[in-house]
């Protein structure tokens, strides 16, 4: 149709950029934190993102999958991905030798609306692997502490051995500028010093003003349900409840169709949706 145009590789949005796994930190069974750095200096310097965004990670020879970023843009240079070994790509990822090359492209998705969150209290509610994207927001808030009022984290895991980022979160319990509430469903070790019970029981331990607070939730479907109930009971407006959603994604850039829900692409319009938008999308919640 139009005049021929020479497309250069820079414009190909699907091209994974060379990167390397520089460190792997075991978390819990089948979960690892991968620290990844781009190979090229300019990528290291220019790559920035918002908490809540994700990247597409390629394991050469196996495939590509989306992962939310667990690190904070306030600590540039390294991207941290908290990964559960669960599928084709993650199985291969866990088998990679130290310093293995991988491909990264992104960041994609909307991320948390930081401009709206600033000046408010932050209530982060996570369950299980849901801590992965919220850890980025938590780190960001703590590194920009003056921009936020109260920062409250509620995180529930099945038992102490299932808690991600356990040691760094346990340290936060002592920290005065954040209220870190950790809970486990059951504790057989007898060593657990924090709370026991489902995550919603933590609401009894925090004062929350729904008018000056944004809640960010991420976790299993059943947790969403009960936390939403709790927040609505406390008169949260639906647009002050933010949720990070998971869908099958194969392109990350709004083309392949897989993450389409109703009339939104999870990869472009999400993965962070406020609850009002989410209930207006068929099949979303």
């Amino acid at each position: 149709m139009s005049d021929a145009h020479n497309y250069t590789s820079d414009e190909n949005p699907y091209l994974p950029k060379p990167a390397r796994i520089i460190r792997t930190l075991p978390q819990i069974l089948d979960h690892q934190l991968f620290q990844i750095r781009f190979e090229k200096e300019e990528m290291i310097n220019n790559f920035t993102y918002r908490p809540g965004q994700f990247v597409m990670l390629s394991v050469i020879g196996t495939g590509e999958a989306p992962f939310s970023i667990s690190s904070s843009p306030t600590r540039p240079g390294i991207i941290e991905l908290c990964v559960r070994r669960i599928g084709h790509v993650t199985n291969a990822l866990f088998k990679l030798p130290p310093n293995a090359p991988v491909g990264i492209r992104g960041p994609y998705g909307n991320g948390f609306p930081l401009d709206k969150l600033e000046g408010n209290n932050l209530l982060l509610v996570a369950g299980g692997l849901g801590m992965a994207p919220l850890r980025s927001l938590l780190r960001y808030a703590l590194d920009n502490r003056s921009k936020f009022k109260d920062v409250i984290l509620m995180y529930g895991a099945r038992n102490p051995d299932d808690m991600l980022f356990k040691y760094e979160l346990l340290e936060l319990i002592e920290q005065p500028d954040v209220k870190c509430l950790l809970t486990v469903d059951t504790d057989n070790s007898g060593m657990w010093k924090a709370h026991v019970g489902v995550v919603t029981t933590l609401f009894d331990h925090a004062e929350i003003d729904p008018n000056n607070t944004y809640a960010a939730i991420c976790g299993p479907e059943i947790m969403f349900k009960y936390v939403l109930e709790e927040l609505l009971k406390r008169n949260f407006s639906k647009n002050r409840i933010l949720m990070s959603l998971e869908r099958n994604m194969q392109c990350g850039v709004g083309k392949c169709g897989h993450c389409m829900v109703g009339y939104k692409y999870t990869c472009l319009d999400g993965p962070i949706f406020n609850y009002w938008d989410a209930i207006n999308l068929p099949e979303m919640v």
């Binding site: 020879g61 196996t62 495939g63 590509e64 194969q250 392109c251 083309k255 392949c256 169709g257 897989h258």
Partner: peptide, 10 residues
């Protein structure tokens, strides 16, 4: 219809 799936072939 523009949906596609992506896969690696070794």
């Amino acid at each position: 219809c523009y949906c596609y799936s992506v896969f690696d072939e070794l």
